[in-house]
Design a protein around this nucleic acid. Structure first.
Lengths: 224, 224
DNA sequence: AGGTAACCTTATCAAACGATAAATAGTAGC
DNA sequence: GCTACTATTTATCGTTTGATAAGGTTACCT
């Protein structure tokens, strides 16, 4: 093999340009793989190959298996990492805070909600996962109904001075009405990150109009 | 291998139960494969294996290659078949027919539009295709803008007695406003066929509310 | 009936892909 | 500077998967 004698300049090469750290503490490497896996699978889907992922990370393929026993395990870690940002109580509180006008609350809510979920990775992994039949999505949808849309329906009733309480449950029609707005706004992100379509930059303005329309629609019909 | 002597009862077996037609005219077989491929890829995605597809059709895997030179060719035929139902001029005409109230037109429009596209196969293949980065989707989206949403914006202007013409082009905000409704209604199908979530049965009622809200939203804000 | 064209299957290849074993090389502690 | 530990690589295995070749079987035509 004609090995060149002496190890001079054996490895000054650095692909990444900057710091090409060779050996990392296990925890760091794991996080690095995970982060790249999120980007990678978001881009190509979960049928993406481990070899290509490894190449993007800048490591060899077998090293993946040092940190994740199987590809499936890695994928599940990706889900956990991406969907960790749960719909927490504070988001619901934002909606139900009656000291402020409902419109303002919804504007604020969607600002934060979009910040947390309308990203390339989140949207695409969410859609890939849904198409796979993953349970996470159905669970997430019912979480959205419980923690966001039904509270919102209740606020709408209050806003329109309509009766509210366990004896007058939120109807299917009311729920679907807010779903159209919520889904319409979500679809904005789908157009952007899944279709790679050009969308208006001013999302706040879109939300403002959508919220106004939704509320106007309620009063135009009478809620329950 | 101990071959049983005599070919008695060589092949009276029929897996499919009913009519298990053995040999088909080429055109029929091709259509049969194509139909099953649509269902199959809609279900599992385009990473689905040719062997499993063949099994569903009830034929052997090499036979697929008699009708479609490569898997990619089959996939492209699937796209063509599914997205053949184009957004044609009649759909646009439905929207621009000013002899009827705009609300009625939109109701009719979405009835037909949903009929054509809100199916298990269409929605899922559309999403799979989009995630793959297929150009079809971007082209479809711009078709929707040209043939549906922009005409709709024009009708909305007319409906609100607002100026209309080449000197006052449809603004980004106006377009996004109808996108929220359109996307919200599309998202109904996504919830149904991608998330397998329970959705309200009465789609007409949902459209009625969504249209009313969208129009109310326009008047509440002033259009351009 | 018999020949023949077309439909279909069996057997198999080669590359791709997830996963493993063994060897190598960087690094920390003494 | 030596040792020991572990991060990383090289080499490779077994299966899966798209695709092909060649033989068999059905149905049509005269």
């Amino acid at each position: 093999m004609l090995r060149r004698r002496g190890k001079r300049r054996a490895r000054p090469r650095r692909k990444t340009g900057g710091k090409a750290q060779k050996r990392l503490p296990a925890a760091d490497r794991e996080q690095q793989i995970l982060s790249e896996a999120i980007r990678f699978f978001a881009e190509v889907g979960f049928a993406g190959q481990t070899r290509e992922l490894a190449q993007r990370v800048g490591i060899t393929q077998p090293l993946l298996y040092r940190y994740f026993p199987t590809k499936q395990d890695l994928i599940e870690r990706v889900f956990k990492e991406v969907f960790l940002k749960r719909v927490d109580a504070r988001l619901t509180a934002l909606i139900t805070d009656r000291s402020r006008p409902l419109e303002d609350r919804l504007l604020d809510f969607y600002r934060r909600y979009a910040d947390a979920t309308y990203s390339y990775e989140w949207i695409r992994i969410y859609m890939f996962s849904a198409l796979m039949g993953n349970d996470i999505n159905r669970r997430y949808i019912s979480l959205v109904e419980r923690k966001i849309l039904k509270p919102l329906c209740a606020e709408i009733r209050h806003h329109c001075r309509l009766p509210l309480g366990p004896e007058v449950p939120i109807s299917e029609a009311e729920l679907e009405h807010v779903w159209v707005m919520h889904g319409g706004l979500f679809y904005y992100a789908v157009r952007k990150y899944v279709y790679h379509s050009r969308v208006a930059a001013d999302f706040d303005a879109i939300v403002r109009r959508a919220v106004k329309a939704m509320l106007a629609g309620v009063t135009a019909l009478g809620a329950p």
